[in-house]
Design a protein around this nucleic acid. Sequence first.
DNA 1: CGTCGGTTGGT
DNA 2: CCAACCGAC
Length: 480
Amino acid sequence: MNTSIVWLRDDLRVSDNPALLAGAETSDNLVVVYVLDQESPGIRPLGGATKWWLHHSLEALADKLQRLGGRLILRHGPAHDVLRELIAETSAHAIFWNRRYGGAERELDATIKSFARASGLKAQSFQASVLFEPWTVRTGGGTPYTVFTPFWKSCINNHDIPRMPLDAPPVLPHSPLITRAHGGQEAEPLASDDLASWHLLPTAPDWSAGLAHRWTIGENAAHERLEDFIDTRLPQYADGRDAPARLVTSELSPHLRFGEISPFQVWHRVEAAKAHGDAVVLKNAIKFMAEVGWREFSYHLLYHWPDLATVNFDSRFDAFPWGEANPEALAAWQQGRTGIPLVDAGMRELWQSGTMHNRVRMVAASFLIKNLLIDWRVGEQWFWDTLVDADPASNAASWQWVAGSGADAAPYFRVFNPVLQADKFDPQHEYLHRYLGEYEHPLVSDYPLPIIDLVESRNRALAAFAQLQGIPRAIRPPSP
DNA sequence: CGTCGGTTGGT
DNA sequence: CCAACCGAC
């Protein structure tokens, strides 16, 4: 028997999955495994909302695999130990996976690849989660990009068109029984954890009802989401994407986060829409793909600056005078009771549904960083815990962008005024009313007074940020 | 992917 | 009085 292992990670799909396809084509017994690894050094534990998503995504994936004749094996523990054991159990001759781009993830994968090859296995990794491999996009001087627009132009103009999506394997050859390599036991099914035993779902309290109401999880749902976006939302995307009350954004981010859909599938679906559409479709498609481009840019940054989530990209910010610890203000922000309606509406949307409209994310983040002078890493961690799309690259890059410490960052003097932003992008206050019921009846409500004066705190932030002005921007060198 | 305060030229 | 525009931060 010719056994291959396919190790799935952030690619919980059967279509356009090069590792799964390679396994299916080169073996007659495919072992598809997901490893819950919360122990390997440097691997950041998932937040609550992403754990919840992962549980349901694994259920959906198991069903997809089963329909193709396969079976999803669940194991937990340090990935290196788990896979060494699995290789021994199955006498696999090959192992395949799709690449990850975080620092610790790359180190871990390299270690496992070395071990597998030293043990005589074929070990191969594939490009599946980004359109442009981070090391292939270089400036004229050979360095990684630190500005979005030239980065994305270079991707579009200087690189091969992203490959066509791959079909799902027609069948997943799988032997239900496997003979252990050691000892003479009877053939037995390969052991798999019970998903429930991983305790990915919240209990006591179960806060997931709002998330379950908002989201349908899994590969099928991701493609339905994409089709609906192309048909009904893309035509209004450029003009409507900034209005939080309108359903115009794609809402694909959590699906992309777990690889239920691939950026290649998104790219080529948008290309097809462009091919059949007019100039309006073209304009909207370019705008939308630029947002996919921001995701690519974030992965580019994460690959070249692996500590993106913890270290200021611009080291001038290492000396930035963040305010004294202010647990009351932080809690008010987290719980959506700052007394600033747009901030509170966004933070409540986040808590209830595991997401927040992009425009409101920028405003809520700007408020924490600039009005409250709280270190961006504190906000990044809260979003990591509460967003269903919490992504190691996009979340970190975006928080640094708002702080002004990041690549191609917002200039320090760009301080959002949440009141003006609400009037401009939510003129009927429809979004505010959706999440702040009491806001409609201020006289009878207990809606809090603002915890901070917007004008005063803006000026305080400008003064603090102005201290950096005399010092030249200091971008850390990329990791070799 | 901004805000503010100023000016200008219109009503 | 105010919308549109501009430069500074």
